[in-house]
Design a protein around this nucleic acid. Sequence first.
RNA 1: UGCUCCGUGGUGUAAUUGGCAACACGUCUGACUCUGAAUCAGAAGAGUCCAGGUUCGAUCCCUGGCGGAGCAACCA
Length: 563
Amino acid sequence: MNNISEEPKGDRSKGPNFIESIIENDLRAGKNNGKVVTRFPPEPNGYLHIGHAKAICLDFGMAEKYGGICNLRFDDTNPVKESVEYIDSIKEDIRWLGFDWGDREFYASDYFDKLYKFAEALIEKGLAYVDDQSSEDIASQKGTPTQPGKESPFRNRSAAESLDLFQKMNRGEFPEGSRVLRAKIDMASPNMHMRDPVIYRIIKAPHHRTGSKWNVYPMYDFAHGQSDYFEGITHSLCTLEFEVHRPLYDWLIDQLKTGDYRPRQIEFNRLNLTYTVMSKRLLLQLVNEREVSGWDDPRMPTLSGMRRRGYTPEAIKKFITRIGYTKVEALNDIGLLEHAVREHLNQITPRVFAVLDPLKVVITNYQKSGEEIELINNPEEPSMGSRKIPFGREIYIERSDFMEDPPGKFFRLKPGGEVRLKGAYVVVCDKVVKDAATGEVTEVHCSYLPETRSGGAEANRKVKGTIHWVPVSEAIDIEVRLYDRLFVAEEPTASKDVDFRQHLNPESLKIITAKAEPSLAEAKHGDLFQFQRLGYYCVDSESTPEAPVFNQTVTLKDRWGKR
RNA sequence: UGCUCCGUGGUGUAAUUGGCAACACGUCUGACUCUGAAUCAGAAGAGUCCAGGUUCGAUCCCUGGCGGAGCAACCA
């Protein structure tokens, strides 16, 4: 099998990206004793999408490149939104991509004790206080980005009182929403995140790992940076929107650290794709509202959806290295991803014949029976061998491969015209049979030229076109699910005034019954194919031997269809 | 109109102590072809947001504009 990670061309002009440069400088400066420790920190509140894959490739990739390690850490600080279902799916998806975190599987909840003690220490140092106000009141005092906030009336209560209240909060003595713990920083800071951020809140829901041990849970901002610190993370790579959180993390680490070590956060641009949405919240909405069949619907940008669609980890990773990491908010053309998918699938998939929209062809002068045609499985990879398909007097061809009155440069079958049936014979179209009522073409009658059989005496007869076919008597019926982009708008979330669901593509899924060569009866879930001249297809998870189901992964490029 | 970050072909990126802009996708030609795919050859397409400055020389350094994004969840 060809290895596409062996660089074909291009891409090589790239030097280190800005993150690699920073890491290399740190290494040169002797920071962290020459160690590189990264982490991938998902919240288990949804399935991973290709944007996460970009982060995963970076987090694991940097560790690998610089001889370090990468932790998998679930940032599970909000039990009401998180579940083990998501944890399991996340681990499966990371493994599918080809990364291994060994025994370094951690949870922010592993640090709840440390975090709680740290919070108590902050209170004792006068750097945190319990606020008895409602979230609305706190929000109203927060100010705006252009106006400073106002201090809470509880800001200067005694440390002893705050400590007592905080402990009561955790004992479950107060209802949810009645009190929070806030860091005491600066209500006039130009950075909103420094305006006495809430660091602990009361949640009485059971946690998937700690059960009912806690009645207070740390906010993400109070858990993430410190978790990095506890794990000895050297380079904490995250997306751009956390840039303004960094001063808060730094402030917290300043209160926590005992030596010189501190994690270094570096922010990069997130992955956006045209014609898709990349927010777990919106994807969850599509799932809940049944706009798609689930998180793994092949139209979803989730890794499980792409896997079911037939995308390979190799293709996804190739795409990600091509788009790179910068600080520019980018919108990537989905075509770039599809190109990477075709590139990989072209190398690895066996070619097969399937006719999506069958038109019957009768070869009137064909008398033989039992003839078989041998076909190469993959011209890109001779080691994949060949297979045989029965040939017969009646075959199906693609309806679009026949035109009664075609425009110029139509290389396929037309009245009086010749076309090669791939692997078999050249046929001439003699007669068109139509439905008297509708005028629809129901059959095409042809005669074949016996000497033109592939490998035969006149095999190199010049014909303009070669088309695929399937024998009527041996063809099997397969269900084919044709997918188009889920949205018709390039940027479904571009406008705040228009709900993104307005842009859903009503034709994103079409289910048809197609005719396929008999060998496909043995295809198994996960098998990938090229339906010759059409595109790449894979066997769906719902497929059974009795009722095979194929998903269209991506079509072949089609210069003719574009005209 | 506060703070932070960012502005290079249609898209995504590159140009590593400043040396007249490169690669991939896409587009368009042509060759080849028993996949109108793939492959191969070639073309068009930016003078690097704007204006100054430093310099022999600026995508790169400085200043000032302009434009875009993020930030006001007891979400992450």
